[in-house]
Write a protein that binds this DNA or RNA. Structure first.
Lengths: 259, 259
DNA sequence: ACAGGTCATGCACGATCTTGCACGTTCTTT
DNA sequence: AAAGAACGTGCAAGATCGTGCATGACCTGT
């Protein structure tokens, strides 16, 4: 006979709350607390477990095991070096500005390093960047569509270029495959290079965050000259002469983690 | 015989107020309080539930479920029930076909349940869906761009509609906020409803996977009539009469997990 | 004033849900 | 290995549910 003082769903919600606050529940204790039989509680726990809302164990239940992201998300575990690059890069972002962020793990680190509460408009052609931003209610998000190059993790091609044509970001963080004072910024595919060139042309300022392995290397397709960058962020281990050479081109050079 | 002391709409308003202030109502208590039969109260609660103004449960009602938590938190609630819905849904997908997948945790479960090796073209306006597909090298991915509604997790508006105009998917999995045999599929915002309606019009077939909490409920904005669906997938606990009523509209009804 | 239609209500009824109990099975402790 | 505790399943009882029907009040048109 149903207990008129508490509804079935209320009891489930209270059990769930207790799991959150106390980290575990015991069936016998719950039966006593709710003044129902332990069989009723076992049904409740079974129902919660079936719904993925608890982990059923002998004698009671534990909170549900946290679900990890996709394999790619796990692969994207951000290294400390990229975090330092990111922290140096986000200082370039003005609150309320419109920023474009490219695909790539360094750029994902940049987005993660941005203040969640500070309002801004984020534009991206990278689904992983956009998916991350879904957890930032204070931001405005604009997704550039098109055919997605799955290896690259970004939408490219005619549709993407057309979407881009309506946007002039204040600042664009562009990922590069190679960055050299003479060869400039370079990419692995023609479409990738073309899209990024257009982003750079439309943005008021352009920033690149360059890991050591991309510095002084040259991929097959030119994006833009090094001097086309407003800012370039380097690791502390980058060659100082290279940084100076790029600085002499009029680029604002920043060393991540430098005091 | 109507009680002249209180009007029908007044009673509904008072019940709603009690839901707000007390967090729950019991049908038997309300019947006693308003001096009407419990059948009258059940009709009232049914009416409130149909309008999305309460959550009907055994013995009474709870306030309508608030849309709380970040997008990632809602994504993490990928329960066993949704997995069953997803497994039933993916059987509708032909290898090599072009499918559209909407935002939402049930739709994410559908994408996760698709065979990673079987080639297909995935079209979506949801960054989380697209980000997941980045782990599927055998697929072709087309991202629909536009301004992203962060709470919803999907790109909407004029740019999204324009991107959509160039695509006619073989099958579209559309998320609904409410699904009712009479009210049809409904959504929480005008732009969301408009976009989904366009998807449905352009797709050769339309499928909805409906969790119990969305069934027999009605959000404010109509998307399409229930009969406009080719397929509707339900949980095993969905009311059989409701499933039959939808089947009579010419919709192919599927019960997830049924043996 | 009267007839017809609409609406809300109460009732009957079959269906469904929740609970406690019994019982055999499984797990843990001694 | 044995005893005790916990478990899931099936069953019965009582409560709750939705649907269809009848009824009376109210409204509208003639």
């Amino acid at each position: 006979m149903p207990d008129p003082d508490i509804l079935h769903e209320e009891r489930l919600a209270l059990i769930e709350a207790k799991l959150s606050s106390e980290g575990r529940v015991l069936a016998a204790h719950l039966a006593s607390e709710f003044d129902v039989s332990v069989d009723t509680i076992r049904r409740d726990l079974r129902e919660l477990a079936a719904g993925g809302r608890c982990l059923r164990v002998y004698g009671g239940a534990l909170p549900p095991a946290p679900r990890t992201g996709t394999h790619q998300q796990r692969r994207m575990q951000l290294s400390e070096r990229k975090r330092l690059l990111a922290q140096a890069s986000v200082r370039l972002v003005e609150p309320g500005s419109v920023i474009f962020v490219d695909a790539g793990t360094t750029n994902l680190a940049i987005v993660a390093a941005l203040s969640p509460e500070s309002p801004l408009t984020l534009v991206t052609n990278a689904p992983a960047i956009a998916a991350f931003a879904l957890d930032r209610p204070a931001w405005r998000l604009i997704q550039i569509g098109g055919v997605v190059d799955i290896a690259l993790g970004a939408a490219l091609g005619a549709a993407a270029l057309r979407d881009l044509a309506a946007i002039s970001p204040d600042l664009a963080f562009i990922g590069v495959c190679g960055f050299d004072p003479i060869a400039g910024a370079t990419a692995h595919s023609l479409e990738e290079a073309e899209f990024k060139r257009q982003v750079a042309m439309r943005a008021r300022e352009v920033a690149v965050a360059v890991t050591d392995d991309k510095l002084l290397t040259q991929a097959p397709f030119p994006i833009f000259a090094a001097s086309a960058c407003s800012h370039a962020v380097f690791e502390t281990t980058a060659p100082r002469r290279t940084i100076d050479a790029i600085g002499e081109l009029g680029v604002n050079t920043i060393i991540a983690g430098a005091v």
